Amino acid sequence: MIKKEKGSKPHVTERHRLMDRPIAELSDIMAPNENEIVEFHCFLARSDYIRRVGPMDERLITREQIDFGLRSKIAGCKVTFEKSAVVTYMAKVPFEEVDLPYMVFRWSDELATRSLQAFTGTWEIETETERVLNRWIRPHRFRAFSSAFPKQLEQLGRENFIKYVVSPKTRKYIASAFATRTKIPDTRFPQGPGPKKISLFFDDVASQDEPDSTAPGWIRHSDKPMIIGGMATMPSRMHTLWPAIASILPQLDRLYLFFDRFDKLPSIRHPKIIYLTSQSFGDHRANGKFLGMLFAGDGDYYFSLDDDILYPRDYVERMTDFLQRGNNAFIAGVHGARLKTDIKHYLTDR
């Protein structure tokens, strides 16, 4: 995500929105077709395109995907996300001690700092070096050590493990790596787009209005009655929220999604979904599912929905048909129960 306040340097942030989520929980609504960056773990591009915007910047061991994404943006090209592609990423396979000299050097503070300096030098951009080191680079190194020496970590505890294992071995591996890298070729990196072009690009970004997903959705695209849904959710329901939305969203024109007491909103963008938060609208708990009625028009159909139900594909069609047969003069509700195979009593056999 690119942000630039007028008169200040641009600021770029990167979000891994679906990391560590089970595939079974994911749906089409959770990942946009167009993205701004792509992780190089799973990256596909034509070689002639890479030659046109590249070569890759060999100075970068972090932020390399953002660098490539920015170059693509300036070149007027798109970075897309292929939802049907599934890969196996084995980064969490345990490390062995023989892996550490490479891993520790690869994720060293020295290389990371040089990388961030090269990145900011190219783009004249603000970055939080200490935050990157503390929240990304050093945890990577620690994970490699803890994976290779699990017994020592358990015996020593985290603090002594860092003091007596991680720190001395890190110094040893990094010193050895720099001492043996004396005859390597000059580092290749692409010619930057140029200060003027970069400045115009970021100024253009700053002038664009960022989509406000929390704005009330009163814009109508048709004179026909709209099919509107309202749903409330809370942090403990994330595992059921996405399947519930995926089951009902294709049947709706708009969904008002109320986030109850979230410190940080989950990342989800869809043109049909409008955020409402307890911070903005008050502590309504489950009743937040009715807030969308404030923005519905006369004649619209409003469905109050739950975040732990999988709705049938014909749910909206059957409900609206039922209402129309009664001239839309009443409110309809549905109550469900799972019946046993051998039903002898309606109350006890469900």
Rank of each mutant, 00 (worst) to 15 (best):
H11Q: 13
E14S: 15
R17N: 10
R17M: 10
R21N: 04
A24V: 13
D28I: 02
I29V: 09
I29L: 11
M30F: 01
A31N: 03
E34M: 07
F40V: 12
H41T: 06
F43N: 04
L44Y: 13
R46I: 10
D48S: 10
Y49R: 11
I50K: 02
G54D: 08
P55D: 08
M56Y: 12
E58G: 08
R59A: 08
T62V: 15
T62R: 03
R63T: 06
G69I: 01
L70F: 01
S72M: 12
G76Q: 07
K78M: 09
V79D: 01
S84E: 06
V86G: 03
V87S: 10
V87I: 15
M90N: 15
A91I: 14
V93G: 00
V93A: 12
P94C: 03
F95L: 04
Y102C: 00
W107T: 07
D109I: 11
L116N: 00
L116S: 06
Q117L: 14
F119A: 01
T122L: 03
W123I: 00
W123M: 01
E130G: 13
V132G: 00
L133Y: 07
A144C: 15
Q152A: 15
L156V: 02
I162N: 05
V166C: 08
P168N: 05
T170S: 10
I174T: 10
A175R: 04
A175G: 04
F178E: 13
I184V: 09
F189E: 02
P190Y: 01
Q191G: 00
K197E: 02
S199C: 07
E210T: 11
D212P: 03
P216G: 09
P216F: 05
D223F: 02
P225C: 04
M226A: 07
I227A: 03
G229V: 07
M234A: 10
P235H: 06
S236D: 10
R237I: 02
H239E: 06
T240N: 00
P243W: 00
L249T: 02
P250K: 02
F259N: 09
D260G: 08
K264C: 06
I268G: 06
R269F: 06
R269N: 07
I273S: 11
G282I: 09
G282M: 08
G282D: 09
R285C: 15
A296T: 14
A296G: 14
G299K: 05
Y302K: 07
Y311P: 00
D314C: 09
V316T: 11
E317N: 12
E317L: 09
R318S: 11
T320A: 00
F322C: 05
L323K: 02
Q324N: 13
Q324F: 01
R325L: 14
G326A: 10
N327A: 15
N327R: 03
F330G: 03
I331T: 15
V334A: 11
H335A: 14
G336V: 05
R338I: 14
L339Y: 08
H345Q: 11
H345I: 08
